[in-house]
Amino acid sequence: MKWVDIAPEKRRGRAAQSNRSGRSDLSREVIDDGWGLPEAFEDFRTSVEIEEPRSVITRNTSPDVPFDRSLNPYRGCEHGCIYCFARPTHAYLGYSAGLDFETRLVARPNAPEILATALRRNSYKVAPLAIGTNTDPYQPIEGTYEVMRGVLEVLQAFRHPVAIVTKGALIERDIDILAEMASEGLAQIGISVTTLDRKVARLMEPRVPAPERRLQSIERLSAAGIPVRVMMAPVVPAITDVEIEAVMRAGSEAGARAASWIMLRLPLEVSELFQEWLSAHFPERAARVMARVREMHRGQDYDARWGRRMRGEGVYAEMIARRFEMAMRRYGLVRKLPALRCDRFAPPLARGGQMDLFQGALPPSQRG
């Protein structure tokens, strides 16, 4: 689907300027029908559908990421980050990567139950589970549906290692579970701080907590003994690249132990959506930003090759990498947090089965 000329007041608090699909022949456009009568169009408000998946663990074999399995409590993301590389996944649902991705969300409330079933299988081999690698598990609707809270309760019961990436301050609600898991080497968190400039953040990530609020989350998580990584993901050429040292310093002062970064990625529909956003908010820098992007990707908006898509290549990409190295060293940040432990994995006794007879004889920590 494609929707053009959407008035700003109809998409207030959203980053995408349109509802472009890019992979469909179907198009919806605002046109003048010749009658001269005012037309009423609804605002792009958040709506949530319920999905009951058969499985919730997604496997991957990419050498660019340090995990082989992930889980997503939600599809779509109300945070609305214009650069989000997950936007094109909404096309699989028949929705747009534009405003639909930010407003037509899908919750998976039975995810904890499905996860528990998967972890109980005899064939399951434990390894860290990544959450938040596609859409944010602590986006605003988590406050209502609490899917992530349920998932964490399952992981805690199974003593299963988890690595979480988020921009949402709602993660502080779950410090009780995360602190206990972290004390056993079972949890670590990545907090994404893309900029310290409130104005830029508001335009680029309209429904994400302000930069200083994310730093506060780092501070509170760290104070609870939870290992935290500050992530500058992505670095946007000619807009946020000037802040590398400042973000690393702020993250370190807030208590982060490690740091990481990813260069701006513009796969599929994201490129057109991002360029629309650039033209609307940074018209004087648009050409410069895209020139840098193409310089790093062999003249293209995006290069999907493994080993290149996350960082790019060339003089500019090498300069950015070098600046991160120096800043991390200066502020005492390491590349990797301690490895999560897999040897503590122990499925609790199943409820409702014969093993329940023996529950009373077990210490509380080993009861299902």
Rank of each mutant, 00 (worst) to 15 (best):
M231P: 01
P237A: 04
E205L: 14
S260Q: 04
E243T: 11
P209K: 03
V247G: 10
P237E: 00
E243L: 10
T240D: 02
R213I: 08
A201K: 05
E219N: 13
D241P: 08
A224C: 03
A254P: 07
E205Y: 14
A238V: 11
R229Y: 01
G225F: 01
E253K: 12
R229A: 08
L221Y: 05
R229D: 01
R198F: 00
L221C: 09
A250C: 10
R198L: 02
A256M: 05
R207Y: 10
P227D: 10
L264V: 03
R249Y: 04
D241K: 07
R257L: 14
I262C: 08
V200L: 13
K199N: 11
V242K: 09
M248Q: 12
R249A: 09
R202A: 15
M232F: 08
A254R: 05
D241Y: 05
M232Q: 15
E253Q: 14
P234E: 03
V235M: 01
S222I: 06
I226F: 00
P237S: 03
L196R: 06
R213C: 02
A250Y: 06
E205A: 13
A210P: 02
G255H: 01
P227T: 08
A259G: 06
V208A: 12
R220W: 05
M204H: 12
S217R: 04
T195R: 07
A246M: 11
V193Y: 04
M204Q: 11
L221G: 12
A201L: 11
E212S: 07
L196Y: 07
I244D: 04
